[in-house]
Computed example of a mutant assay.
Amino acid sequence: MQLDDARGERRLEVGRVVLDADALVVVRGTEEVCLPPKEFRLLQFLLQGPGRTYTRMQLLDEIWGWDTEGAERTVDVHVNRLRTRFAGWGELSIETIRGLGYRAVVPGE
Rank of each mutant, 00 (worst) to 15 (best):
V33A: 03
V27H: 10
G108T: 00
T96A: 11
L46N: 09
V14A: 08
R7M: 15
D67L: 15
A21V: 00
D22R: 10
E95Y: 06
P37L: 11
E91M: 02
L42T: 05
V105K: 00
R7T: 15
V14L: 07
Q2W: 09
K38W: 12
L46M: 07
E32T: 13
E31Y: 12
G88I: 11
R85E: 01
G49I: 12
L43A: 03
F40L: 09
M1E: 10
L92H: 01
D20G: 01
R83I: 04
T68K: 11
P107Y: 05
N80L: 13
T53V: 14
G65R: 04
V33D: 05
T96Y: 10
K38H: 14
E9G: 05
R98A: 02
S93Q: 12
T55V: 06
D4G: 15
D76R: 13
P37W: 09
L100Q: 08
L59Y: 07
D61K: 12
V25H: 11
D76Q: 10
D67A: 15
M57S: 06
R41Y: 12
E31K: 05
R41H: 05
E31D: 08
A87S: 00
W66L: 15
D5A: 12
R73K: 09
Q48W: 03
G108W: 07
P36E: 14
E13Q: 13
E91T: 05
E109F: 08
L24Y: 15
F86L: 06
E32C: 14
G51C: 07
A71R: 13
E13W: 08
V79F: 08
R52W: 06
F86T: 13
T30A: 04
E13F: 08
E31Q: 05
I97R: 05
G108M: 01
D67R: 15
R81H: 07
D67C: 12
L46S: 09
L100C: 00
R11I: 04
D5E: 08
A21K: 00
A23W: 07
R85V: 06
P107M: 00
S93T: 07
P36V: 14
V77D: 10
L46I: 09
E62W: 09
G70W: 13
R83N: 02
W66S: 14
V77T: 14
R52C: 01
L100Y: 09
G101H: 00
W64R: 08
L42I: 04
D67I: 15
V79C: 06
R85S: 01
L42D: 04
Q44H: 10
I63M: 06
A87T: 15
V33L: 02
Q44G: 07
E39V: 10
R10G: 03
R103D: 01
D4R: 14
E62Q: 15
V27R: 09
R11Q: 05
R83K: 12
F86D: 05
R85P: 00
T96F: 05
G70L: 14
P50F: 08
G29F: 05
G51I: 08
V26K: 03
V18Q: 11
T30R: 02
V18A: 06
R98Q: 08
V26T: 06
R11E: 11
T74E: 13
R41W: 14
L59P: 03
D22G: 10
G51K: 06
R41K: 08
Q48T: 14
G88P: 06
Q2F: 13
I97N: 02
V27P: 07
Y54V: 11
E62L: 09
